[in-house]
Design a protein around this nucleic acid. Structure first.
Lengths: 254, 254
DNA sequence: TGTACATCAGTGAACGCGCGTTCACTGATGTAC
DNA sequence: TGTACATCAGTGAACGCGCGTTCACTGATGTAC
């Protein structure tokens, strides 16, 4: 993850896999240790106040040593972002893929979203890094974009399979053409073969809404806005994703 | 808001309104100046990194002088929280009350939520303070609770009026009894006379979902998660609130 | 297998900085008589 | 209206602290011959 001056000696296309040296393995391990320590710090300090020196202390090295691994605090943040997005993405992909009956789109929908919430509850600091307030003065670079899309890609895959099987959504209210507003999302889905060209705009709108609602629900839970209104956040979450499935016209497996 | 050692000389129940002294007026004005400066800082620093010294500098006073107004950084944060919640609440109440046809529940629904988004877009720093990641190490005290409820109280009022007029919601999926999960919200609404005792659980669930979806949508917009998917965030927002109104069974005015 | 040089990880001191908070002070404002 | 004392806002210096980053260094690891 984002080494500094020392790019892994790029294996030329046809070269045999070189034996990894002691140094290389140590480097990987310590990089991981730094990231782990930083993630733990994130649960109690917020990304904006994340202290490189504190992380170094936790790992047991002097603060300047961290600079052998990350060129700056911002680069460490970027690595954390990529790591967290990838971990979340992998968890969701795995949980969704574990549903053996691929026609059970509601089951897949539930599995995917439950994995998102499960990860978020288990890693609130990382969740806040990804979906909380942005870090002031820090702009996430390009490398974070692709990992950030993994969840929505899984979700779009489920929705596509469901519509191919002929699901029905509620009629959209109003009469305007909403396609231009969500054109970006349509383009994204089509580029990756996640949606047929003739997919109705309403499907895209409802998928975006579902996506936003789920993350909104998790944020409200973790950030304390459901206290007093909802007693069991896990039950409430299931209530929400079931209604979202219905609103998208996903139907229970036969 | 939250003076330190100098509580306003509590007007005893029946005493006539005393003439305000020069000092009292200066105090109020400078308190406001400090809060304003802090809010501006919040747009570029995040609440966790909000610097008392920077705020003092902006106001043109020495850092220790701020302690005449707020006993600590945390107290300043609390005052900001209350101020922002109250400002947002007032904006929403006013926008909703401005809809003259009180039977037009969809119009009132739209007016209220558009006011929320309008305020959020105009005050992104304050919005992040209220609805972004919580400030690590800071626990919002009791005084912030009531101001925080003003938006949902307005929304519940609209929904109540709509159901009194006989609106229809989609059938809930599943068959369990969801009432215990949202018992807190039901109690809240009933205590304030915002919902009849026989209001269906599904109505409460859908109202909570709408509430969460709207704030989720605004957070996604302001925190950068809609970039690339949605081209015009204001249009998209209207698309969302219209669908939420439909999901709640709110119907256009006759 | 052995030697000579290059690379690299980690150290420790130092830089300049900004932070929250305390404290004794001064001068202006308010109050009691 | 005038005087004497009390209250209060704001000052400036100081406290102890932690931060990100740089730099010359040492000793271990890797590589070429």
């Amino acid at each position: 993850m984002t080494p500094v001056d020392h790019p892994a000696p790029a294996a030329s296309p046809a070269s045999p896999p070189r034996a990894r040296t002691v140094r290389e393995r140590a480097r990987e391990q310590i990089t991981a240790e730094i990231l782990t320590a930083a993630r733990i710090r994130l649960t109690e300090s917020g990304p904006g106040e994340l202290s490189l020196r504190a992380v170094a202390r936790d790992v047991g090295m002097v603060s300047s040593a961290v600079y052998r691994y990350f060129a700056s605090r911002d680069e460490l943040l970027t690595a954390l972002l990529v790591l967290a997005y990838d971990e979340l993405g992998a968890a969701v992909e795995q949980a969704e893929a574990a549903v053996t009956d691929r026609h059970d789109v509601v089951g897949r929908w539930r599995a995917a979203w439950l994995a998102v919430r499960g990860w978020a509850v288990a890693h609130p600091g990382d969740y806040a890094l990804l979906y909380g307030s942005p870090v002031p003065g820090y702009a996430a670079p390009q490398v974070t974009v692709e990992p950030a899309t993994r969840v929505i890609v899984v979700i779009l895959g489920i929705v596509m399979d469901a519509t191919a099987a002929g699901s029905r959504m509620p009629e959209p209210p109003g009469s305007g053409d909403d396609a231009p507003v969500v054109a970006g999302a349509i383009g994204f889905a089509q580029e990756r073969g996640l949606m047929q060209a003739e997919a109705p705009t309403e499907l895209v709108v409802r998928t975006l809404m579902g996506w936003t609602t789920v993350f909104g629900t998790i944020s409200f839970e973790l950030f304390g806005h459901l206290v007093g209104s909802v007693s069991r956040a896990d039950d409430y979450f299931e209530i929400v994703i079931d209604r979202l499935a219905a609103d998208l016209g996903l139907t229970e497996a036969d």
